[in-house]
Amino acid sequence: MTSTPSGGRPRRRPVLIPVLVVLAAATVGVSAAAGGLKEAPEKPPEQAGKGAEIDQGRMVTRFDDAVVRLGGKDGIGVSDRRYLQLVLKVTNKSEITLLAQMMDDALVGVRADGKPLDDPASTNVTGGPRVVAVSGGHSYGQMHPGVPATVVLAYELPEGKPPPKSVQIDAGMYAWAESFFYKTHEWRLVTTPVAPTAEDRAHGRQFHYSPIVVAQVTLPVRVEA
């Protein structure tokens, strides 16, 4: 089949392949110029201050105040101890009544002057704050759907130490996620793999999942007499 087909029509030039080659080269070039195929660095969490309103998926949280006061008021704590109280206005956006205690999970990290507050090794025996929904001078435990509730996270402060100057709160993000195994849906904190800790390495893990932080809220701490 060496002879050209009769008819003498000029052979068509192969256009498609050069075009594809050029496109592929352009794709590679542009990707390389944009930093390669590595995962884009995550957006740094939004920085916010007092009064900021953060959408956490399952709830919208307004960060109203951080105050150090003696216990006893609003049914929180005992009157001879000092508590760092984070005062939030939380609107439950899910379809079901939630317990206020879950705000401890929703705020994935709370630091006072850079030191973690809900550290299990802290002086607080429960290893975390007491979280209540305050209404009319009493503390309760529920956040009803669509109803804004005043939620207070109370951290007991060690005695004889000066109160912190400021707190930094990492707000996590919830998503209505499907369970891999059961295929049912539930609200879950959105996580991302991060560098392994020493413990992870000991278990042979290359990374571990840590909740993402959508906003970092810095509140000045005021001390109530």
Binding site: E95, I96, H138, Q142, H144, P145
Partner: peptide, 16 residues
């Protein structure tokens, strides 16, 4: 018991 509103919100009995 719980209250189911027309838009599907579920209110548990109050703990007050």
């Amino acid at each position: 018991s719980f209250v189911l509103t027309a838009d599907g919100l579920r209110f548990e009995p109050t703990d007050r």
